[in-house]
Simulated assay, not measured.
Amino acid sequence: MSNSEQRISTETALRLLIKQQRRQILRRVGDAPGATTVDQLIRHPEGTDSQQPEESGSVERRDLELHHVHLPILQDANVIEYDANQGTVRRSREFQDVLSLLEAIDDHREDASPSP
């Protein structure tokens, strides 16, 4: 198998999913039929994790982290394509594998919730 055909490792995918903001980005990009804009990611940061305390602090800090930390990390792992000049984000080669892992984690969390 060549490097271009290798799939993302489970360990790498799990490291990408550690941060709440990256999980939210993946959910938003997954919900978009094509590319989404960074502005849409900023305006709608909520996700399944939104009931948890915000890890990042202020809105300005979250925006900086989005542009300079989270989007570049996901791009470096070939999960998204981030065009800073155009302000767009779209799925990349490893997106579906990481999103599938996130969905499995979410499903497990729902299954583990106590019944009312």
Rank of each mutant, 00 (worst) to 15 (best):
S2E: 07
N3A: 07
N3W: 02
N3H: 05
E5F: 03
E5V: 04
E5P: 00
E5S: 11
E5G: 06
Q6K: 13
Q6R: 14
Q6Y: 04
Q6H: 11
Q6C: 03
R7A: 13
I8P: 03
I8E: 05
I8M: 05
S9F: 02
S9D: 10
T10F: 12
T10E: 14
E11G: 01
E11W: 00
T12I: 09
T12Y: 01
T12K: 13
T12S: 07
A13L: 02
A13I: 09
L14Y: 00
L14T: 08
L14K: 15
R15S: 13
R15Y: 00
R15V: 10
R15C: 08
L17A: 11
I18A: 14
I18S: 13
I18V: 12
K19I: 10
Q20K: 14
Q20L: 11
Q20M: 12
Q20P: 03
Q21W: 01
R22W: 05
R22T: 10
R22Q: 11
R22K: 11
R23S: 13
R23N: 11
R23E: 14
R23C: 15
R23Q: 14
R23G: 12
R23D: 09
Q24F: 09
Q24G: 15
I25F: 15
I25D: 11
I25C: 11
L26W: 13
L26R: 08
L26E: 10
R27S: 09
R27G: 10
R28C: 03
R28Q: 15
V29A: 05
V29P: 00
V29N: 05
V29R: 02
V29H: 03
V29W: 04
V29T: 05
V29D: 02
G30D: 04
G30N: 12
G30W: 02
G30E: 05
G30Q: 06
G30M: 08
D31G: 09
D31W: 02
D31V: 02
D31F: 02
A32H: 01
P33I: 04
P33A: 07
P33Q: 03
P33G: 01
G34T: 04
A35S: 11
T36G: 03
T37E: 04
T37I: 00
V38C: 04
V38G: 01
D39N: 08
D39M: 04
Q40H: 02
L41W: 04
L41T: 10
L41F: 08
L41G: 01
I42C: 08
I42H: 05
I42M: 04
I42R: 10
I42S: 09
R43F: 07
R43E: 13
R43A: 15
R43H: 08
H44P: 04
H44K: 08
H44V: 06
P45E: 13
P45G: 07
P45D: 10
P45S: 12
P45T: 08
P45C: 07
P45N: 10
